[in-house]
Structures are given as C-alpha cells and as structure tokens.
Nucleic acid binder design. Sequence first.
RNA 1: GCCGAAGUGGCGGAACGGCAGACGCACACGACUCAAAAUCGUGCGGGAAACCAUGCGGGUUCAAAUCCCGCCUUCGGCACCA
Length: 806
Amino acid sequence: MEAYNFKEIEKKWQDKWQDEPAFKAVDFHPTKPKYYILYEFFNVSGGLHMGHLKGTVPSDALARMKRFQGYNVLFPIGGDAFGLPAENAAIKAGVQPQQFVVSGLENALSQTKRIGLSFDWSRTICTSDPEYYHWTQWIFLQLYKHGKAYKTKGYVNYCPSCKTVLSNEDSQGGKCDRCGSDVIQKERWVWFLKMNEYSEKLLGNVDRIQMAEHLKEAQRNWIGKSEGMQVSFKVVNDKNDEVGNFEIFTTCIETIYGITFMVLAPEHDLINKWLPFIKNKNMVEKYKNDTAKRSALDRMADQKQKTGCVLEGIFAVNPVNGKKVPIYIADFVLAGYGTGAVMAVPAHDQRDYEFAVAHNIPMIQVIEGDCSKCAVEKKEYLVNGAKLINSEEFSGLSVKEAKNKISQKLIEMKLGKKQINYKMTDWPFNRQRYWGEPFPIIFCPHCGEVPLTEKDLPLVLPIVKDYKPNEHGDSPLSKAKNWMNIKCPICGRDAVRESDTMPNWAGSSWYWLRYVDPHNDKCLADYEKLKYWGSVDVYTGGTEHITRHVLYAFFWQNFLYEIGAVPSRDPFAKKYGSGLLLDDQGKKMSKSSANGVSPMQVIDEYGADVARLHLHFLSGFEDNVPWTYNGISGITNFIDKVWNLQSIIKGEEVTDKHRIDLNRLIKKVTEDYEEFKPNTAIAAMMSFIKMIKEDSYISKEELRIFLILLNPMAPHITSEIYERVFGKNIVNENWPKFDPQCLETESVEIPVQINGKKARVITVNRNVSQEKLLELIKQKYPELFADGKVIKKVIYVPNKIINIIK
RNA sequence: GCCGAAGUGGCGGAACGGCAGACGCACACGACUCAAAAUCGUGCGGGAAACCAUGCGGGUUCAAAUCCCGCCUUCGGCACCA
C-alpha cells in the first residue's frame, strides 16, 4: 500500500470542508437539539501562532463529536478587528487600518482552514464592518438612553505612549496592556459605562457559569465586594463653626473610638469647597499637583513611605464622642473607591499606622492586643476573641457585638448606613484613537449632548490619511472637519460629533449574539433565534481575558437582557480556559513578543493531523506548555499505524476478543472530548492500536468505530480512510455508543495486600465473594499464611483490592 | 502583602483514597540489512536483596501522589480597596 501523503489528502478534505453542509448550523432545526460552541475570535493584528492551535482544536473536536451525536452545532469564527492592537500593527506596517484588517482577517481565516477547523464559514463576522458595528453603536445608544453611559471629567488611567485613556482592566499592574508603558492618572473628559452598578449581577453570572474555581475566584477578587458602614463626619473650622461634612466608608466600624485623623484622596472634590478655611493652601495645592504627576506604578512602589499633607485650620468631628481630629490628604487613599475618604485608626490598620508614624500622629488602642510594633488588624483580632477597650459604653464587648451595636447607634443618629462597595469601577469607554467605533453622539452648544437616532446608524468611520495619535492626545477624528462638523438635529445650529472612539473591547462584548443572526439589518439578532440558540454551551479561550472581556460580556448581556433585547442574563453556560503555549524560554507565545512558532511551519512539515495530535498530546488543555518538536515522531508513527490499518482488515463484525477494549475506548474517548482532555483520549487510542497491532487484524466494524472516534482530533486521515474503505463521507456517521455490559472482563486481577503492603496478585472471576476469594488466596499462596498469625481483619473492595490485616 | 494553582522517572505527562509511573519521547539491547535509516521485538525510578521511592515535616486511614495541618519552591492573578 502506498504511504500516507498528507499534503495531497489534507488539501483535498480542507477544500471539501469549505462548503460542507454538515458544518453549517441550522436555525430552528426541526429535530436536532442545538449545541453552541464558541472559541474566542481572532484578534486581527497578526497571523496565527501555535497558541491558537492549542485553543481551537479541542473545541473543533467537541464540535465534530457533537455533530456525530446528532446535535445541530453552531461553531462560528470571526475577527476582532477594531482597537489598539490592530491600529498599532497597521501603523507599524505603514498601511491603512481598513486595508490591514481585511487582509489580516483573510490571512488568519485561511490559516484556520489549514488546521482543518470545521467552522461554519457562512457566519463569519468582523467587528470593524459597518454591518457589525452598526449594532455596537446601537447598544451604546441604548446604554446612553437608559442612563448607563455618561460623560464626565474624571481622573483616569492614561497611557502616555498610546496617548489614550485606559480602563482599569487595560492597565492591570499599572502598565498599559498594549505597550507596557507606565500608566499615569490624568483628568480628562471620559465616557463611562455604569459597570459598577452591575457588580452584584456579575457576581451572579460568576456563580452560575461552569468554570474552574480559581478563575471564578479571580473574577470575584476583581469585582471586590466588601460590606461595611458609610458614616458622615462633620467638618469644623478652628472656631468650631460647622463648615461642611463628608462621608467615609469602613469595614471596621468597631474601631471608631480609635480615630486620630481622617484622610481624603487628593483628588477629592470637597477640598476645593473647604479651601477658604484652609490655612496652608499652597502646600495643599502642591501636594495635589505632585500626586497628579505620579504614575500609578510610582504610587504603588512607595507603599512604605506614606506621603500626605494636613489641611490646616479644619477638623473632622468623631460622631460617637465629639472628638476633633485633623484631616489629611494623602495618595494612599484612592479617589475611585468607596467615598474617596477614610477614618484612620493607626492602632488597628497597618497603613494608618505607617502614616501616623511618618507624620507624628498619636494612636488610640481600642481593641486588646500589642500595638507597640505594628497595628493589630482585623485578621488578628477577629480570630482571637479580643475585646474592645477605651470605647465608652462598648468597652468589654466582643468585636462582633461591638460591630453591631456601634452600627446600630450610628444608624439611629442618622449619621451612618450599611453599605456595600465594589472595587470594580465604571468602565472608561472612550479612546483618543482613530481605529474604533465612532460614538453616535453630537455636541451642540445649545442643546448639549444629542444622541443620533437609530436610523442614522451605522455612523461610518471616515477614511482619513493621518490617523496617528498626536502629542496633545486629541483624537485623530477631530481633524476630519467634514465629518466632525454637523448641524444639530434638534435646533439646526452648528454642532460637532464626538471625536473619540470606542475601545477594542466594545465589539467583543456582544459578538456571540451576532453569530446567531450575522446579517440581520433590523436588530442585533433576531430574538427568536437568540432564544433558539440560547447561552453558549461551551466557551473556550485564553484565561488572560477572565477579568476583562468575560466581565464586560457579563455586563452587556445583563443590560441587553434588562432592555429585552436578549432572552438570558448568561452569555455562557460553561467556560474552559486554555493554557498558554510557551517558547523554549518559558515565555508566553504571542504576537507581541514575536516568538510565535507558526502553525503553518509545523503543518507544512508534518501535516495538520500530526500538528493537532502532537500539541494536544503534550499536556492537558488548561496547562501551560512549552512548544517542542520532541516526541512528534511518536505521533507520526501513530498516524502511519492508523493508515496501515487498511491492510489488515479481516472480517465484518467486532470480535469477542476486542469487544471489551473497544467499548472501553468509546467510553473513554467520549468522556475525554466532552471534558477537554484530548491528551488522555489520544493515549487511549494509541493503546488500542497497540493491541490491534499485536493481534494483526481489525474487523471492518472495529475500524469504522475507531475512525469515528479519532476523527474529531485527526479529521483528515480518518475521512480519507473512511472514504476508501466504506465509500462514504464520514461526516454523516453517528457517534458510537458503548454497551455498559461490555466494559468489564469476566476475570479480574486483584492485588493481595498483607497489612497494607502488596504481596501478590491473584486472577479470579469477577464479583467473587470475600470468603471465596480468601479461600482461593490461601490455596494459591499458602506461604502468605505460614507464619500462623491470626487474621484480625479483612478489607475487600470488590474487584479492586483485598487487604489482609494480621 | 493578599488570593489562587502546581511540585510524580533522564523528559512531556497518567492515575486524583485502592497494583504509582498509563501513553509517548529519549536511551540500551536484539531482529531485518553488506551497512545505515526506517520498521519490528525486548528492557527501561533506585536497590544485590529485604525494601526505598510522588518537594520537605507531621497527621487521619486497613490503605495517601490523592484528604488534613505546618513549611519550602515555582508559576499565575490582584495589589495602599479603607
């Protein structure tokens, strides 16, 4: 028989699959149940790398298996094309982003085909197509109309290199997610989406989704729920006249008698209001300016040196005892969290302690413990049963009791209320860049913000020559005068458009909905179709998106649900995070670090089936794994053996000898594909082939079943052999079922332990009784009992193990 | 600092209370060959053996890589969150 020519054969099948009807999802299929498998769409800023192979192939395998199992499978793909990555790549290549994206997506998709992925190509979308971003803009318009989008001046993360505002999600660790520069805080006009309002609902999504616990934990930490008290403090001048008040948030109200100073974030608005009463205005202004200049990273780097500036001439009054304490501004207090102000209890909070030491502020201890070297914090006093001291009528109470009673007292005084805060902030949604969705908003000097009407959508991004960001951080669109200047639709006078664009996460925050109905020009997707396809059954992609894209997705889906545009709050029922593919230095393979091994290189040399199998035999789906060619010969060997099965076909039906192995294989492979464990599925198939080789024959029925089992991971070779042997296209086959009666052999090998140590192995009939088994052991291995010791106890796990205790 | 995950042969990794090292790579020997490659076969944690072995030290259990407690190391996430 001729050798397996993967080049010719893989090409043949890939061409066939371009238009394979079996891979097309059918809306409202009359008989088949639906199954929606989603792989994160490609960011169109470079070609594919091996990392994409790691993510896509097990999803493809699941899609192929589900089709065999009789499901109506939706397995689509598309391009995430707007945003900084694509724009920066276009700048680097010196071409227009429009051009760059079209060729980039085409390239990515053609590479995808060469991996043998069975996407439904008829549903391909691209976020920078007006047909698509029409609906991204429509969603923004709905957010705006429902009060979930607002423009305000605020301090936000800003990347001086990309010259644009960034969200917290885009500047994790104080570094720009795109270019790695240090992020600074800048006051700018910002479009915010009210994501914080959705915190509790997002926690609901996190609870309901099926996902690895550590990923859920990462999301919960990011949302950062904490329960405490919000308390109002009066502000007085040095003559004791009340000049204002402010609110603080605390989770440790039990320490309120320990307050010796108060701290506001330097950006806090009220400071300007109090300025007339502040005696050291210059120092205060200077501190505010210094803070503004420091990058987020700088601020974090000096955690031990707590800087700050006292507001001379005004004081805060402790509501429980009337005590006057100084007020500071300091950059360790964050403007964006809670109320941007805190009560400082140096005896019981380490940051307050360090600040007090640095600024020579006294301490008052109010909970038992040793505060001489550092603060006694809640993680200590909450567990050791310490009691309150120096706290008037609350002294002597346990912390838990005091928490309740002090809260109660403040609530009765109408100065406090229970409050839940979340770390997750509202989403800064505009970028001063060209390559994104234009905002459907007009600014009129007379009418203010005027949203476009829905029939004006899509608002098409104009093609401009100079689209690079400029030094002042103005948006490139502001220079496109013809586009910018417009008559106000209300009053008809001169007005301008919003010149900022949306961030690259906008288009990806709803794309799974569009696959359901990709060409609808009446709405984002037909409601009945959305109902039919429901939540994505299995969503796969990188874990690095877990606290960004996935949370944005939850947010938009909740909003769209609330306005009746989609039928469910949950975009995804189950999420698997694929591990990273690393280079030989242990670094992540990515387009940005240019260390990616091209999958095309591997496919050219070994073929797509070998590439698919090798990569997924290397490690588990969720594990990070360094790319290596080591071991690939084991896979080529396996593929050759599979090809050569054609020459040892004998008989039609499954032989008795192979029946159990085959049924076990069906069970194992089915479960492993379902659970994203391709590595052990492949191992099981190798073992099966080993057994077949030993026996030197395979019946037609065994071959048929084996080919179907292997097809999801190695679709090309299995399709070819199937066609040659059975004269049909394998895609129309049914997934084999195992017979539960045929999983077990009649005899079993049982390890015999003496006092917990393995001594012998005995082969007996399945389901033998303990008495009978013991008798057989005594007969066969009398030497184990030669010492004459009495058997004290026997533990027998049927068909598994027997342990004899003497 | 906080949260999380993981430490198993020369290597990638199985098993996740019940025979540790499945499956593969590498290696060694043998067959085929004039020879080599490819292929096939055999062996392959350590130890002469009793035994010892799943990062280290304890514990629970008839039985622990697996469960519990305390360390160490590595990786990932968050990071002054009041």
